[in-house]
Design a protein around this nucleic acid. Structure first.
Length: 479
RNA sequence: GGGGGUGUAGCUCAGUGGUAGAGCAUCUGCCUUUUAAGCAGGUGGCCGAUGGUUCGAUCCCAUCCACCCUCACCA
């Protein structure tokens, strides 16, 4: 008899295969944790979950049920539940949800087990689960049917629970520091705050195109202008770009702004935040990522952008002319044709030669102004900005500035971007007149920070693909 | 977009120019402390799609589709 026939047979016995309710008194974990006490008690426990394995012996059966906390074995015996009820169990399959009531005991091998006195179908499953030993291996199926991945591969569940706990830690930490969590628009008439092509959508009533945000930066700054001195938002950003193990078209970003702070204050904040997360999750500030042990404890290494290039290439490019930098990039085998602007060339040199070496937490400071349209010019160093990026395990996790708050300078930077756009750079910034107007009312000195949350979760969960930390990564629809 | 790989039973995977195999799952028996339960016997497949070569293709070739890896792109 197959599953649908069993379903029918149950209905003929007037059993609702999808009942509304079961009164659970203990989870599997609670039973295991307080087993010694429960063993001496006379009142039975009620547990429920999905049947994930089944060993039936004619007139008795053992099975494991999986619930949110873990799993527990159940023992079912014909002469204890009655012959008729036992027969009913033959209509149950692996994958079904069941509620079980009974007293706890230990089997001959010492396994904590519930001896069923009564049981009830809670939901009939019409498909078999993936193979019990290997689990679900096919990556495509794991992403498309994540629920099967979660049922059969326990470490996947742990990764995603960690993700949620990391988010809680971030909020707990920032709230404790006096930050206010806020919400700003996803649908924006002008997109900005990052370099990326946007997703475009249309509002029917207004008959205008709107963009899904690529960043929330310009809105959070409006709140700083409005007098909210410490704000942050954890949100989805959308970038219409390629996908790989570090990029998903929608991804989670933390942006944070603090009035009367500069980028040095933000560096300290980053160190504290990462250590807080590590201590809360693992009770240590040393974490393992692939083959590396990462020591998050402060102070992190600080090295200026140009120095880092000199250190890892042996060449000081800080005063080099554009022509020389282009030649140098070419020698390294990097693209350097004249249509690519110099900021991007410098960036590609950095990414190729410096970034892979940044395993232990490192702040790279003081980026050239042409790479950083929202960062304030450096208080001392000509041609540089007060900007840092934070790298761990070779990945860029943080990007922060002393924020540009000079409206005239900001306007010039936008105009510069407009030129890039005309030259064919699809990712250059669009001039945002409304934002400039806000800034012209006066914006206090402010430190700002962006952290790619997915990458941060990858670091803390030792994952090498962004798809392993996003429940439902973007996939092409099945045909 | 370039290069490489994968696609065979519900799942995990073998395999062959002559219409297909294992383990698990499933079905039928037997089995009242098992745990990758056991024993016996079954069911299950457009061999990713479309063309071509061939007497004959799941296998060789071409194209396409999906996924993975990698490079490019990408704050």
């Amino acid at each position: 008899m197959h599953r649908r026939e069993k379903l029918k047979a149950l209905q003929e016995k007037k059993i609702n295969p999808y009942p509304c309710f079961f009164k659970r008194t203990y989870t599997s974990k609670e039973i295991c944790d307080s087993f010694e006490k429960l063993e001496t008690e006379t009142t039975p426990v009620s547990v429920c979950g999905r049947i994930i394995s089944l060993r039936s012996h004619g007139k008795s059966a053992f099975f494991h049920i999986l619930d949110g906390d873990g799993k527990i074995q159940v023992y079912l015996k014909s002469d204890e539940v009655g012959e008729e009820k036992y027969k009913l169990f033959e209509l149950f399959d692996i994958g079904d949800f069941i509620g079980v009531t009974g007293k706890v005991f230990k089997t001959r091998t010492g396994e904590k087990t519930v001896r069923s006195e009564d049981f009830q179908l809670l939901s009939k499953s019409l498909h078999p689960l993936p193979e019990k030993w290997h689990g679900l291996q096919d990556k495509e199926l794991r992403y498309r049917q994540r629920y099967l991945d979660l049922i059969t591969n326990p470490e996947v569940k742990e990764t995603f629970i960690l993700r949620t706990r990391i988010l809680s830690c971030i909020r707990k930490f920032l709230d404790s520091q006096g930050f206010l969590e806020v919400e700003t628009p996803v649908l924006q008439p002008v997109y900005g705050g990052a370099f990326a092509r946007p997703f475009i959508t249309h509002h029917n009533a207004l008959d205008i195109d709107l963009y899904l945000r690529i960043a929330d930066e310009l809105y959070l700054k409006r709140l700083i202008i409005g007098g909210l001195e410490k704000v942050y938002e954890v949100c989805k950003d959308f970038r219409n770009e390629g996908m790989d193990k570090n990029h998903n078209p929608e991804f989670t970003m933390l942006e944070l702004y603090q009035a009367y702070a500069d980028y040095s204050d933000i560096m300290e904040l980053c160190e504290k935040l990462f250590n807080f997360i590590a201590l809360e999750l693992f009770n240590t500030n040393k974490i393992r990522f692939q083959d590396e042990e990462i020591d998050l404890s402060p102070l992190w290494r600080r090295i200026s952008f140009w120095e880092s290039i000199e250190k890892y290439t042996g060449v000081d490019l800080s005063r080099a002319e554009e022509k020389k930098i282009r030649e140098f990039a070419q020698d390294l085998g990097l693209k350097s044709d004249p249509t690519i602007r110099i900021g991007k060339i410098i960036e590609s040199i950095f990414e190729a030669k410096v970034q892979p070496n940044l395993i232990q937490p490192t702040f790279i400071l003081d980026y050239p102004v042409e790479m950083s349209p929202f960062a304030k010019k450096h208080r001392e160093k000509e041609g540089l900005t007060e900007r840092f990026e934070g790298f761990i395990a070779g990945a860029e996790l943080m990007n922060a500035f002393s924020e540009l708050n000079d409206p005239l300078d900001q306007r010039e930077r936008f105009e510069q971007q407009a030129k890039f756009k005309q030259m064919g750079d699809e990712e250059a910034q669009v001039l945002d007149e409304d934002f400039l107007k806000a800034m012209e009312y006066g914006m206090p000195p402010t430190g700002g920070l962006g952290i790619g949350i997915d990458r941060l979760v990858m670091l803390f969960t030792n994952s090498t693909s962004i798809r392993d930390v996003i429940f439902f990564p973007q996939m092409k629809p099945e045909s």
